[in-house]
Amino acid sequence: MAHDHSHSHVDENQSDKQLTVAVVINVLLTVAQVIGGVFSGSLSLIADALHNLSDAAAIFIALVARKIGNKPADTTHHFGYKRAEILATLFNSSTLILIGVYLIFEAISSYLNPQPINGWIVVWVAAIALVIDLATAFLTYRAGANHSINIKAAFIHNVSDAMASIVVIIAGTLIILYQWYIVDLIATVLISLYVIYHGILLLKQSCKILMQAAPSNVDTDAISHAISNEFNIESVMSIKLWQLDDKENYCELIISTQHVIDLAAVKSFLHDNFKIENCIIEIQSITNKSLI
C-alpha cells in the first residue's frame, strides 16, 4: 500500500509539472498573438489570443484547485475547500462572456472603419499557435484528462483552440490571395460566439452547484425505486440531492419503514450505484424516529 501511495504522489507531481508547462506556453502564445494581431491589424488573431489566455487560466485553476481541494475540512469549512474551484469557474465564465461580447462589438467597429491587414503575419502567428495548441492539448491529456473532469475540460478547450487557429489560418490565406478582409471579421465573430457559448455553459454549471441544484445525471425516481426494492422500504418520503463540486454528489433521505434497515448498506448501495459520496438518512416510523 505504501508503494501505491508513493506512486500516486509521483504521478500527481508529474501531472502538476505538465500543467505548469501548459500554462506557461499558453501565456507566451497569448503575448505573441496579441503582438501579431496589433502589427498585422487582425482582430481574429487577438480574439484567438484571448481565447488562449482563458485556457491558460482554466489550466491554472485546475492546478490550484487540486492543491486547495486536498486540504482537509476544518472547524470553519466543514465540507472542505472543494468549492474554491467552482467560485473560480464562476468568475472565469463571466469573464469569457464579457470578452466574447467585447470582441463582437470590436468586429462591428472594424467593419465600419476598415483597416489593412497583413495576411502573412496572421498566417505565421496562427500556425505557431496551432502547434502550441496541439502540444498543450497533449500535455493536458497526459496530465489526467481521463480521470479529472476539470483537466478534461482544459484538454477539450485546447483542442478547440487548435480548430480556432485553423480558422484564423484560413482567414489569413484568403486575405493574402484575394484581399477578403471581411473574412477576418467573420472569423472574429465565430470565435467570439464560441467563447460566449462555452462561457454560458460553465456559468450555468457553476451556478447550479452553488445554488445546490440537484445533479442532472442522477434520477431521484430511480433512487427511490432502487432502494425500496433492495431494502424493503415502504415509502421514500423525501430525497434531496446536491453537489459539493463537479464530482461529488450528496444526499439527504427520509424513509418510512417498519423493518430494521442496515443504514451502512444503504449508503454503500447509493455510493456504488448512484455515485453519492455521503448521505444523511432519516427513518420515520409509527413508533420511532431516528436521524443517522
Rank of each mutant, 00 (worst) to 15 (best):
S6P: 04
S6V: 14
D11G: 10
D11K: 13
D11A: 15
S15R: 06
D16E: 15
K17Y: 14
L19Y: 07
T20Q: 14
V23H: 01
V31T: 14
I35N: 05
V38S: 13
G41V: 03
G41C: 08
G41T: 03
L45E: 01
A47Y: 00
D48Q: 08
H51N: 11
L53I: 06
A58I: 06
F60V: 07
I61D: 00
A62C: 10
K71G: 11
T75F: 10
H77L: 09
H77T: 07
Y81R: 00
R83A: 03
A84F: 15
E85N: 08
I86D: 02
S94W: 02
I97Q: 01
L112C: 08
N113D: 14
N113P: 02
Q115G: 11
I117F: 11
N118F: 08
V125M: 05
V125S: 01
V125Q: 00
A127F: 08
I128Q: 01
F138N: 08
L139H: 05
G144K: 02
H147Y: 13
H147W: 08
N150R: 08
N150L: 10
A153N: 04
F155S: 05
I156R: 02
H157D: 12
V167Q: 02
I176P: 04
I176M: 14
W180T: 10
W180A: 03
Y181P: 07
I182D: 10
V183P: 04
V189C: 08
I191P: 04
H198N: 15
G199E: 01
G199A: 06
L201K: 08
L202T: 01
L203M: 13
L210N: 03
M211Q: 07
T220K: 05
T220W: 00
D221Y: 12
I223H: 02
A226T: 09
A226V: 13
S228L: 06
S228Q: 11
F231Q: 02
N232C: 08
I233T: 00
E234C: 09
S235C: 13
I239F: 13
I239S: 04
L241A: 06
W242V: 05
Y250C: 06
C251D: 01
I254E: 11
I261A: 05
A265P: 00
V266D: 02
H271C: 14
K275M: 08
E277A: 15
I283C: 01
Q284W: 06
I286N: 14
I286L: 15
